[in-house]
Design a protein around this nucleic acid. Structure first.
Length: 833
RNA sequence: GCCGAUGUGGCGGAAUAGGCAGACGCGGCGGUCUCAAAAACCGUUGGAUAACUUCCAUGCCGGUUCGACUCCGGCCAUCGGCACCA
């Protein structure tokens, strides 16, 4: 008699076995095709949540499946271990961030092992360890060498709660991405990475990413925000200076009736100083400053402006146009100044309406009376140029090109391109991050730390109270140093790097995690990179994925990598919900993975989470659903257990006879192999793959009811059942594989292959429709030709009955599927004749 | 406002190239076993109808087609991204 399914015993047994045998260790093997499966490495918050479980379960199925398909699979895991929560916990509990972080890592590593995820733990990477951040700093130095890391004073996003600056990408609707406090603007000197130099490539190469969801590519495209147009300068009357503007609509340049500078524009105050307009302008600027931080980010605000009393000259027609300041022009896009064309730009139209500025139509659409300038809104459509001198009659599209050419020939301006993407602000005024490897010398200025002095170690014994300055400011042992160039007493940079810097290259480190002289070996990276399948939450669609692409392109340019894109295929998994909303402590709807694993086992948890929904969609947690998955594993267990002994001794002697039931089972077996293979490989639809394994199990249970058993067939079917299920629920399958008499691991077997011959049926069921509605079914030989099928269908008594008093107009036949008889009422068709 | 996605039983979801709507699982109902219950197993389960039957059903309205969850046009709702980007 076989034993009850004891998930605890089975899972701990095989977890130890895999660990003791270093089962998932991989190395570069030129004889095998490689496959790199990667899940986003987690922040070590302390415990896995269901989102992690889902992420790793998906990755593990893919990794195990590819291994069985004969690939040499790299499947690593690590820790995105720098960051604010460690500091906050440290402040709260008075535990050093390092200690907090490392103990969380130990705990979470244990949880991952208890899920039975097949990682090569020999490649574990931890971004807060000196052997890792040494190379984060090393890459910083390379960027600095190429002038892609630079320091500048700028208006930056400041989170008052986190007491640090944030990158543009970390500001969501004016609020801190992490703590949701409203973000303020501060003028500070900070380190930036010049990601804008890569804007065009980051945009163009999205086309190479055929394995990415369109949704993510569109988000990145919008974030990069390329617009094409031109820049030109306007002379300021009686001022002796010029203002440069950027526009995407040079075709409307004859429609300019005013121009606008951003309130922060350096010329703004100088234009009015000593003029009667000075007071008006400065009170306007004061006003803007006081509301801008909060209100300018939150929803619609009315357009407001002030006239400077100054005029500029439109270089195309010599017209004098008034210069305004207005709140709707942003300093950090384009040149911070615009030409305003109220007739053809809605914002300018609204502003002109409010301040009684003329509107001049210069693009005439179809059915658009030339005289009528009383527009109710800006005209944004295509049309012919009018009121535009030499250019009258051109289409807007031609006009753009011609005017740019004219400006270039007459040295008025030039074609140019603008991006919304800003440089990446990487300084953080916090402790728990990789120190920026720069030294400030009173004589030599900013000096990079020599490569041989890396890593710049983060001191461990530190007071880490946040007060807007990095805690490293108060650690003399840290900041006091000698200038590497002249030897004078100097001071280290005390800001640390944004944690997104650390996570922008970890997938390359996995390729050779122990190299000590370079971030990763080129040879190993050439073998493993790019990542064949990356899996993670869609919340990283912009931040992490953009930064990681940027780093990969930079490292490619440094000849350290041979690929230009890090991730060939991307799967963005949905969230795990409970009662319709995301699991969170505040809502009290959290289901802990540990509890589920203890009660039902990792195999059940994984099976449920993969079965409940396709991976891209959100998943609704269901306790009953988990029970269902558990029941299914119990059914499989019993099925295998009950047959195991029979097969062991009787498998060979009992004949391989073929009756109808056996034929049906054989057919089902091959159909299921085909279905599961396609679902896993081509669509990642694990839910339907599992459902067809369930069907197969049901079929096997049904077959058991019959009196005669074809034991060799059953043996084959059970072997295949266990093989197909093994990527999803690895422990129970490992155990059942041994019960079926095998000596080796199920996870090292070849994936089953279906036999197309076995899927050819001599009889097929065909649907009979009358005018598109199903009325009957017939079973015919799969060889039957169309005429035969038609005759058989028309001969069915039920069909005859329905067709009485009707004329058959047409018969449509789809081979092996259906026959549709189109019929009309007899009277009607007579009438129509 | 712009861009994108989604909408199917009581629930999660299936229908992969326009061809049987509701696979598989959950829940419900009925049964077997049991002193009883749980577990397990078997049957049943979109709605309407007494019904073999028939009719109605894939957010709503229309269209194309022999045939539409699937394609086209127009709405509605929900979710996500961006949001004065010149």
């Amino acid at each position: 008699m076989f034993q009850k399914y004891d998930h605890r015993k089975i899972e701990s047994k095989w977890q130890s076995f895999w660990e003791e045998n270093v089962f998932y260790k991989v190395f570069e093997d030129e004889k095998k095709p490689k496959y790199y499966a990667l899940e986003m490495f987690p922040y070590p918050s302390g415990n896995l949540h269901m989102g992690h479980v889902r992420n790793y379960a998906i990755g593990d199925v893919i990794a195990r499946y590819k291994t069985m398909q004969g690939y040499n699979v790299l499947h690593p895991m690590g820790w995105d271990a720098f960051g604010l929560p460690a500091e906050n916990a440290a402040i709260k509990n008075n535990v050093p961030p390092a200690q907090w972080t490392y103990s969380n890592i130990d705990n979470m590593r244990g949880q991952m092992k208890s899920l039975g995820i097949g990682y090569d733990w020999g490649r574990e990477v931890t971004s807060c360890r000196p052997d890792y951040y040494k190379f984060t700093q090393w890459i910083f130095l390379k960027l600095y060498e190429q002038q892609l890391a630079y320091k500048k004073a700028a208006a930056v996003n400041w989170c008052p709660a986190c007491q640090t600056v944030l990158a543009n990408e970390q500001v969501v609707e004016g609020h801190c991405e992490r703590c949701e406090s409203p973000v303020e603007k501060r003028h500070l000197e900070q380190w930036f990475f010049k990601i804008t130099d890569y804007a065009q490539r980051l945009l163009d190469d999205l086309d190479l990413l055929t394995g990415w969801p369109d949704k993510v590519k569109v988000m990145q495209k919008n974030w990069i925000g390329r617009s094409e147009g031109c820049e030109f300068s306007l002379e300021i009357e009686d001022f002796g200076e010029k203002i440069t503007v950027f526009t995407t609509r040079p075709d409307t340049v004859f429609g300019v009736t005013y121009m606008v500078l951003a309130p922060e524009h350096p010329l703004a105050e100088r234009l009015v100083s000593g003029t009667p307009y000075e007071n008006g302008v400065s009170s306007f600027l004061e006003n803007i400053k006081s509301i801008s931080a909060i209100t300018r980010t939150s929803g619609d605000i009315a357009k407001e402006g002030v006239f400077t009393g100054r005029y500029a000259i439109n270089p195309m027609n010599g017209e004098r146009i008034p210069i305004w300041l207005a709140n709707y022009v942003l300093m950090d896009y384009g040149t911070g100044a615009i030409m305003a064309v109220p007739a053809h730009d809605q914002r300018d139209f609204e502003f002109a309406g409010k301040y009684n500025i003329p509107v001049r139509v210069v693009i005439k659409g179809e059915d658009f009376p030339e005289e009528d300038v009383r527009l109710t809104e800006a005209y944004l459509g295509d049309g012919q140029m009018v009121n535009s001198g030499l250019f009258d009659g051109c289409t807007a599209e031609e006009g753009k090109k011609k005017i740019i050419a004219y400006m270039e020939n007459n040295q008025i301006g030039r074609g140019s391109v603008n991006f919304r993407l800003r440089d990446w602000l990487i300084s953080r005024q916090r402790y728990w991050g990789a120190p920026i490897p720069i030294i400030y010398c009173p004589v030599c200025g900013a000096v990079p730390v020599p490569e041989s002095d890396l890593p710049v170690l983060l001191p461990e014994d530190v007071e880490f109270k946040p007060n807007g300055k990095s805690p490293l400011n108060y650690v003399a042992d840290f900041y006091k140093c000698a200038c590497p160039v002249c030897g004078q007493e100097a001071r280290r940079e005390t800001d640390t790097m944004d944690t997104f810097v650390c996570s922008s290259w970890y997938f390359e480190r996995y390729c050779s995690p122990h190299t000590a002289d370079v971030p990763f070996s080129k040879k190993a990276a050439d073998y493993w990179m790019p990542v064949d399948q990356y899996i993670g939450g869609v919340e990283h669609a912009i931040l992490h994925l953009m930064y990681a692409r940027f780093f990969t392109k930079f490292l490619y340019d440094q000849h350290m990598l041979s690929c230009q894109e890090p991730f060939s295929n991307l799967l963005t998994q949905g969230m795990v919900l409970k009662d319709g909303s995301k699991m969170s402590k505040s809502k009290g709807n959290v289901v802990s993975p540990e509890e589920i694993i203890t009660a039902y086992g990792a195999d059940t948890a994984r099976l449920f989470i993969l079965f409940a929904s396709p991976p891209e969609k959100d998943l609704e947690w269901s306790d009953q659903g988990v029970e269902g998955a558990f029941r299914f594993l119990n059914r499989v267990w019993r099925l295998v257990g009950e047959y195991a002994e029979l097969i062991q001794d009787g498998g060979q002697s009992s004949g391989g006879f073929e009756d109808n039931e056996s034929g049906a089972l054989r057919y089902k077996m091959h159909a299921v192999i085909k279905k599961v293979t396609e679902d896993v490989q081509e669509r990642f639809n694990f839910n339907t793959a599992i459902s067809s394994i369930m069907e197969f199990c049901n079929a096997l249970n049904g077959y058991r009811e019959h009196e005669r058993h074809n034991l060799p067939l059953i043996k084959e079917a059970l072997n295949n059942l266990v093989l197909l299920l093994s990527p999803f629920s690895p422990h129970i399958c490992e155990e059942m594989w041994r019960l079926l008499g095998h000596e080796d691991s199920v996870h090292q077997q070849a994936w089953p292959v279906f036999d197309p011959e076995a899927l050819i049926q001599d009889q097929v069921e065909i649907v009979i429709q009358i005018s598109g509605k199903v009325r009957d079914h017939i079973t015919v030989s799969s060889q039957a030709d169309e005429k035969e099928i038609e005759n058989l269908a028309l001969a069915r008594p039920k069909i005859k009955e329905i067709l009485r008093n009707k004329n058959v107009v047409k018969v449509v036949i789809v081979p092996k599927k259906l026959v549709n008889i189109v019929a009309k009422q007899a009277e009607e068709s007579e009438k129509s004749i």
